[in-house]
Write a protein that binds this DNA or RNA. Structure first.
Length: 868
RNA sequence: GGGUGCAUAGCUCAGCGGUAGAGCACUCGCCUUACAAGCGAGGGGCCGGUGGUUCGAACCCACCUGCGCCCACCA
């Protein structure tokens, strides 16, 4: 990308117009003032006449709609906004939509607690249902119909969406609010169903009956990406199995004795000599008396437990693997509600069947105690259970361990069982540009570690339904393998209320009729399509051609395996290309104790109170000081820094623009120190531009900020008097100051949009956010042949003068009677070019330069005035 | 168990092969015609540990320690 060659300002352009400066400039109220102005002007509205090469398209993460905006969320979005603002000023038309992730479980949960209701699909729809927010002590949840429940979900999310939009505007996000979408709206449901049907027709999506991880509280299947391990207390139980041929009993250890009735085999490692003689023989399970084979498998670990384990259907995912590979029978007893089935399983009889009566209807926990008691009575429990802690899989939003339940579910192929697809996904990960680059390996490890296809169906209510129905044969049996799919043109559909093609509603649930698919899609099955949703895929081909594939996907590190991965997958399957060229991964926000902020820890800081205190620019500055992917402490002390900078911008601008000369031009810049300052600024522009273009907004800010403080402390102090005085050399300072101010405001604009816009409005037409990004060429002419050392050398001498005054505890306006500066000849020659400014800035009466070997500055202060 | 990132001043972080930096906090000054929500000056560091590469290491390599995050088949 060519850097810094846009928008050169002709030399003769008038730099300093009449400025209208408020009496007392202040940061107060800038968010409201400019937020409303930008909205009224449509400043960030996307211009869709631009072509793909002129456009910069961002696939903004749709935040989950919750009660209040989290500082960590704001942190990431601010960084992206700085990039968006840079790209816009740099000449790209920015496609910057915002979405709301409002489908799925979090919303259902909120509706349940907010209104005190629960969804019961058997309850009829009530068009006049009146609900009010539940009181604190309302424990009972009223059962309402699915359509009523979904309506409440939509009502609640709309309230939150308005609130969120207001907060984002206050933070200064430059998104185009006309492009807002929600993951549950018609467009999103249409895209999700359309993409699913395409996957289905190409064989990439399929339904299968089989064991899957199941949350017994939510009563839904969950996907691999949503598991998490938690440490729980458990115990090893040593259990004896009798040998069927009357030989020695076999001892196994298990943390889940309640699964004993589900045991289908014992397994040992093929090389384990201890059990070699047993293999191929049968054993009999304790208490339940079921005859079971002893089998071998390489995944059995000789050093775990007793080295021989029981295989149950199903205790963990290894059981599933063994069950599949060894062709074992299915003996599940745990139902979808997490309880042991009421009827006695068919494989139990006699004493085993009697024993089962003690388990029927119980939860896993209750059944465990019952089984331990039965084992103890039967003398099959060897010793007492040994307490231990171990990792158990939970649904990340769940409270009880996941069970494995057999059910019919929808899947999308993700490379877990397809090496060719896996390789394509890995290649895509290498092609994508990651910021920072080390985040790439998280993606690679996830793809390499996948072991099941992506389970996309959920047995929930508020989500995108599968656009599928099933025939019911004449005997009333639902034919699950005979799916009727919706026609693309009519999407979105709800198979619970719409009839499939060729049927009418009266045939629902009847022999010879149809049944709608009862499930909804996992939220990621929709949000993996955000590029397609926003870019008008299939419905607006003109827009699609202009923005897809997009430029940037910003997001958090924890959802690389879900959102990022699934978006790449869907795009690869549907379009054969990456959905975007770059991804930027933000870091975590930690509280000042270095712990990750989370609601459960109660250490969450809201961004709005901080904006009250430090201004949006202050909070934005804090966020933009952090490198992409780097964790940052939420330290209000650091936000003071940004606020201070914003105030400084205000005051320095007031000084420069208050000089009042209306007609200076770049041709007026003649003084060496003025040209030196602009030469240094030229380098700043080049560096900042390069950094921004490489997604290193923090480097751009740092470089600009360091320059700006030096500009204020040294250059501005040195030339102040000359600028006040006017005349040819005064005009030089005025022109240089105006030039620098214009450039600096634009360099700061992406990070601090409010204060820069405020100052810009004092003396420029239009918005700073649509002004051209400063180009090095703007400064090159004025800075030609400059010696940048003049400014540094003069600044160093000024520092010596200040030091002397400080040491004597005198004011900086105190007169210096005599200043003698000795240095090497070329340095002296350089310094002489700034002599007048040095005299004025230091209040020096007598200044002498001497040539010598090393720097020596002698400062003699005037005596205190005798009080009159 | 594997992977990955971090470890520099009291705090938050830059620096990533050539004499230790910034901001905050702290100390001492200063009403100075942009700014007292300001300005100036100052104190403060065996750059986590141990080895190695190099003329030279905060920086490169190896190992170790501590913290965070991601993943793993968890009997």
């Amino acid at each position: 990308m060519a850097v810094g060659e846009l928008g050169a300002v002709p030399v003769a352009t008038i730099l300093l117009r009449m400025a209208i400066i408020p009496e007392k400039p202040s940061l107060g109220g800038l968010e409201a003032k400019w937020g409303a102005d930008w909205q009224a002007r449509g400043l960030y509205r996307f211009d869709r006449t631009k072509t793909r090469d002129q456009i910069y398209a961002i696939d903004t993460p749709p935040p989950t709609i919750s009660g209040s905006l989290h500082l960590g969320t704001a942190f990431g979005y601010i960084q992206v906004d700085a990039i968006a603002r840079f790209q816009r000023m740099y000449g790209r038309e920015v496609f910057y939509p915002m979405g709301w992730d409002d489908n799925g479980l979090p919303t259902e949960r909120r509706v349940q607690t907010h209104y005190g209701v629960r969804c019961d699909p058997n309850v009829p729809y009530d068009p006049d249902l009146a609900v009010a927010p539940a009181g604190k002590n309302d424990k009972a949840q009223r059962a309402i119909s699915r359509p009523n429940f979904v309506e409440l979900c939509q009502r609640l999310t709309e309230e939150f969406e308005d609130d969120f939009e207001q907060q984002w505007r206050t933070i200064g996000l430059s998104v185009d609010w006309d492009l807002t979408y929600a993951t549950i709206n018609d467009r999103s449901r249409r895209v999700a169903q359309l993409a699913f049907l395409r996957n289905l027709s190409r064989g990439e999506a399929y339904a299968a009956e089989g064991p899957s991880m199941w949350d017994v509280d939510f009563q839904t299947a969950v996907a691999q990406a949503e598991f998490e391990d938690r440490e729980v207390n458990g115990a090893f139980h040593k259990i004896a199995f009798a040998a069927a041929d009357g030989g020695d009993p076999v001892e196994i250890e298990t943390t889940r004795p309640e699964l004993l009735p589900s045991c289908v085999a014992l397994v040992a490692h093929p090389d384990d000599k201890r059990y070699a003689a047993l293999v191929g023989k049968d054993v009999v399970s304790a208490v339940f008396g079921v005859r079971l084979p002893v089998v071998v498998h390489p995944l059995a670990e000789p050093d775990k437990g007793t080295g021989i384990a029981m295989i149950c259907t199903f205790g963990d995912t290894t059981d599933v693997l063994w069950w599949r590979q060894l062709g074992l029978p299915l003996r599940s007893v745990i139902q979808r509600d997490g309880r042991f089935q009421a009827e006695t399983p068919g494989w139990l009889s006699g004493a085993g069947a009697e024993a089962y009566a003690a388990l029927a209807g119980k939860t896993s926990q209750q059944a465990r105690r019952a089984v331990v008691e039965l084992l103890r009575e039967a003398g099959a429990l060897i010793g007492e259970p040994r307490p231990c802690t171990h990792q158990v899989k939970f649904f990340e939003k769940g409270d009880r361990p996941l069970e494995i339940v057999t059910s019919r579910q929808w899947y999308i192929r993700n490379g877990a069982r397809d090496p060719e697809l896996r390789d394509r996904l890995l290649a895509a990960g290498r092609e994508l540009r990651w910021h920072p680059d080390f985040m790439r390996v998280r993606y690679e490890h996830w793809v390499e570690g996948l072991n099941t296809d992506w389970l996309i169906s959920r047995q929930r209510y508020f989500g995108v339904p599968f656009p599928v129905w099933y025939r019911i044969d004449d005997s009333g049996e639902t034919l699950w393998d005979q799916a009727i799919t919706a026609e693309e043109a009519v999407l979105p559909v709800d198979p619970q209320s719409d009839a499939p093609p060729g049927y009418d509603e009266s045939q629902r649930g009847k022999p010879g009729g149809f049944a709608g698919d009862p499930d909804v899609m996992d939220t990621w099955a929709t949000s993996s399509l955000t590029p397609q949703i926003t870019s008008g895929w299939e419905d607006d081909p003109d827009l699609f051609a202009r923005v897809f594939p997009m430029d940037l996907r910003p997001q958090g590190p924890e959802i690389i395996r879900t959102w990022l991965f699934s978006t790449v997958l869907r795009s690869l399957l549907e379009h054969g290309v990456l959905p975007w060229r770059n991804t930027s991964i933000n870091g975590w926000i930690l509280d000042p104790d270095r712990k990750k902020m989370s609601k459960s820890k109660g250490n969450v800081l809201g961004p709005m109170p901080l904006i009250e205190q430090f201004g949006a620019d202050g909070v934005r500055h804090w966020a933009c000081r952090a490198a992409p992917g780097t964790d940052t402490a939420a330290d209000p002390n650091q936000m003071k820094v940004g606020r201070r900078l914003a105030v400084k911008v205000l005051n320095a601008s007031k000084f420069v623009l208050g000089l009042g000369a209306a007609d200076v031009t770049a041709a007026d810049i003649i003084e060496p120190i003025d040209r030196a300052m602009l030469a240094q600024l030229e380098a700043v522009v080049a560096d900042a531009t390069e950094a921004f273009a490489a997604y290193e907004y923090h480097r751009a800010l740092e470089r600009t900020e360091v320059f700006f403080w030096q500009f204020c402390d040294d250059y501005l102090e040195l030339v102040k008097m000359r600028a006040y005085r006017g005349g040819a050399d005064g005009r030089s300072a005025q022109a240089a100051l105006a030039t620098a101010l214009s450039v600096l405001l634009r360099l700061f604009a992406p990070v601090m949009p409010f204060v820069t816009e405020e100052v810009w409005s004092w003396w420029q037409d239009g918005s700073v956010h649509r002004a051209p990004w400063p180009a090095a060429s703007e400064l090159r002419e004025a800075a030609r042949d400059a010696d940048p050392a003049v400014l540094d050398a003069a600044g160093a001498v000024l520092a010596e003068i200040r030091k002397a005054k400080s040491a004597e505890q005198k004011s900086q306006r105190h007169e210096v009677l005599s200043l003698v500066v000795e240095d090497e000849p070329d340095v002296v020659a350089t310094l002489q070019q700034a002599e007048t400014d040095l005299r004025h800035a230091g209040v020096v009466t007598d200044l002498v330069f001497k040539e010598g070997n090393e720097r020596q500055v002698r400062v003699q202060l005037a005596p205190d005035a005798v009080p009159a």
